[in-house]
Nucleic acid binder design. Structure first.
Lengths: 340, 340
DNA sequence: CTGAAAGCGCTTACAG
DNA sequence: CTGAAAGCGCTTACAG
C-alpha cells in the first residue's frame, strides 16, 4: 500500500507538504495541491490509521457504549446505534462498539490505550455505573439519556416533559377533559428509568394546569396486564375519552385488540396518542398519532456535542430535543362533543 | 499516560524486554516478568493502540458490516451484532461498526488505511455488493450468511436445509402426514434471500422423502395476508394437521389470533413449529416449538474463522451450524391419531 | 535470557 | 509557500 513518501515522490514535494495539503492546516499553492491530489488518486493513497493516531492527537474513533437492559427495546437501540454511526461518519469518525459485558472495563481500556477521542453513551440509567468512569476518564463524552446527577456531564434527550405537555394540549384542544395515561411496567418507575417518571409527572401536572381530569396506571405487557391497566384507568376516570400511551411497544397492539373486542371505536369512542415511541405506529389500525422518540436527531446531536468537546469549546449541559406531534387517525373530538 | 519507557525504567529493564514480556513472544525470566508486571500495575500502563498498529502487523480491530435491508429484523441484527462483539472481545479484538450508507466505501476505507485486521459481514444477500470488494481486498473475512457464489469465501450460517428436515422429521415422528409451510413474503424468494428458498426446497424434499403430503405458501405479514396463506395451505392440504413457520415474526402472533378466533386449538387440532426464528417463542400461547436461529454460535464461529485466517491457517469454506429443536407446547400427535 | 537500535508512517514545530 | 527533521510509542530483527 502506498504511503505518504510515495505520494511525495510522485508529486515532487516533501512529505510535510503532502500532509499539510491533505489536512488543510496550512496554505498550499494551487498547482502543488493539484499535483498532490493527482498522486493520491494515482496511488490510491489513504493515510495509515495507526501512524495518524500515533503522530497526531486524534484517532477519529468514538466509543459507543450500548448495553442491553431487560427493558431495552432492541429495535430502538439499533436505531440509535445506526444514527450515531451515520452522524459520526459525517465528521469522518468511525465507531467502536462496546457492549454490556464490558461496560466500564471496555471504556477504561479504549481510553487508556488512546484508541478513541470520545465516548457516546446509549441507554443511560439513572444511576449508571458508567458515569463514574466517565467523570474519572475526563474524555469528551455525550450521554443519550439523563442520569440523576448531571453535574459536569453533557447529555441529550427528548424533552419528555414537553412531550407529555404536548400530548395533553393536543387532546385538550380537541375537547377532551378526561385523559388516561397508560404507563410502563411498575419496575421502570421504581428503578433505572428517568424518562418514565418524568413523563408521568409532567402529564399529571399538565392535566391539572389545564383543569381537566387525568389518571395514570402502570401496565404489564401482557393481555391481562393491558386489560387491568385499562380497567384501572376507567375506574378512576369513568368519563375517559382519551388515552396517552407511554409504554412498551407490545402494549399498543394488545390494547387495540382489546378495544376491538369490547367494541370501543378508535378514535370515535376513544382517542389514542402514542408518546415517545421508537417504532412506527403507522401499521396499527387506525394509524396512531405519535410523538416519536427522535433517534436520528439524538444521535446527530450527541455526535455534534462530542465533536465540539474534542475541539475544545463546549460547556457541559443538558440539551433537550423538542417533541413533535405526528397527526394520524387515532384522535378525534370526544363523542359527547361530536354529539353536541 | 505511562508509556513503555516508563514501565521499562520502573522495572529496571529495556523496553524490548517489556514488549516481549507482554506479548509472550520470547521467554523471559520469571523474576523479570514479575517486576514488569508490578511496574505495569503500578503505572496503570496500557500499550498505545496507534503505536501498536503502526509497529506491529495487527490492529486488533474487526470491521463489522451490518446493513439494514427492508426485511431486516432489527432485534435479530442486534443479537448478531452483540454476539460478534462479545466473541471478538474474547480474542482481544474490538469491533468497528460499518453501516449501509458505507457498505463498500467503508470497507475500502478501513482496509486501505490499515484500521482493521479482518471483516465480519452480517445480513449477506445472494448477490451482495460487498462481496466483490471483499474478494478484491483480500483481507480475512467471514460472512454470516451464504451468497450465490461462495468461491474463495469463508461463510457461516445455520443449516437451513437441515432445519427444514428436522422440522419435518419431528412432526412425522408425532404422526403427522400432512404438513404446511407458511413462508416469508414472496419477494424474499425472488430476490436477495438465500435461506428462504433453501428452507422451502428442503422442506418439500423432506416431505416427499417421508412419503407425506406437504404444501408451501408465501405470507404477507398482515392479518389478511396470514389468512390468505392459511386458507391457501388448507386448500392444498384439506387434511393438514401441522404447520411449519419459516416467516416474519409478526406472522406468529397474527396466526395464533386467527386460529383462536376460528377455534382451531393448538396443538390439539393443529401443531406448529417455528423454524429459524431469531426471537423468543416462549411468550406465545401456547409457547411454541422452535428451531432457533443461532446468533450466539454464528457470531462466535464467524470470529473464530476470522481469527484463524488472520493467523494464516484457514481454507475458505462454508460452515453450517447444526439446527437444534426446542420442544415447547405447540406440537402434539394429530387429532386423528389421538382419536384412534 | 536480555539489550540497543531500526523502523513503522504519520504530524507538527522549526526554519527559511 | 515549502522542506528537513524530530518524535509519537511501539515491535522485532540483530546481536550477544
Amino acid at each position: 500500500m502506498a504511503n505518504i513518501t510515495d505520494v511525495a515522490r510522485v508529486a515532487g514535494v516533501s512529505i510535510s507538504t503532502v500532509s499539510y495539503a491533505l489536512s488543510g492546516k496550512r496554505p498550499i499553492a494551487d498547482a502543488t495541491k493539484t499535483r498532490i491530489a493527482q498522486a493520491v488518486t494515482e496511488l490510491g493513497y489513504r493515510p495509515n490509521a495507526g501512524a495518524r493516531m500515533l503522530a497526531g492527537s486524534r484517532t477519529n474513533i468514538f466509543a459507543l457504549t450500548a448495553p442491553m437492559h431487560e427493558d431495552t427495546h432492541p429495535p430502538a437501540l439499533m436505531s440509535f446505534v445506526l444514527s450515531v454511526v451515520t452522524a459520526a461518519r459525517s465528521y469522518d469518525y468511525d465507531v467502536l462498539l462496546l457492549t454490556e459485558g464490558e461496560a466500564t472495563t471496555g471504556l477504561r481500556r479504549v481510553v487508556s490505550s488512546s484508541l478513541v477521542d470520545g465516548i457516546i453513551m446509549l441507554d443511560v440509567t439513572v444511576e449508571d455505573e458508567r458515569i463514574d468512569v466517565i467523570r474519572e476518564l475526563g474524555l469528551p463524552t455525550t450521554l443519550i439519556g439523563i442520569p440523576h446527577d448531571t453535574e459536569g456531564l453533557t447529555c441529550v434527550d427528548l424533552d419528555f416533559e414537553g412531550a407529555a405537555r404536548l400530548a395533553v394540549s393536543r387532546l385538550v384542544a380537541l375537547g377532551h377533559t378526561s385523559i388516561g395515561l397508560m404507563g410502563h411496567a411498575e419496575a421502570l418507575y421504581e428503578r433505572g428509568s428517568n424518562y418514565a417518571p418524568r413523563f408521568r409527572d409532567a402529564f399529571l401536572a399538565a392535566g391539572s394546569d389545564a383543569g381537566i381530569q387525568t389518571a395514570f396506571h402502570t401496565t404489564v405487557a401482557t393481555r391481562p396486564g393491558v386489560e387491568e391497566s385499562l380497567d384501572g384507568l376507567r375506574a378512576q376516570l369513568p368519563g375517559m375519552t382519551a388515552l396517552v400511551l407511554n409504554c412498551n411497544e407490545n402494549i399498543h397492539g394488545i390494547l387495540l385488540e382489546v378495544l376491538r373486542e369490547r367494541e370501543v371505536a378508535v378514535p370515535e369512542a376513544l382517542s389514542i396518542v402514542s408518546a415517545c415511541s421508537s417504532f412506527s405506529t403507522d401499521h396499527f389500525l387506525p394509524p396512531m398519532d405519535v410523538i416519536p422518540l427522535p433517534s436520528q436527531e439524538s444521535g446527530r446531536r450527541a455526535v455534534e456535542l462530542a465533536i465540539q468537546q474534542i475541539a475544545g469549546f463546549a460547556d457541559p449541559h443538558v440539551e433537550l430535543i423538542a417533541p413533535v406531534y405526528h397527526r394520524k387517525s387515532s384522535t378525534a373530538p370526544p363523542a359527547a362533543t361530536v354529539a353536541a
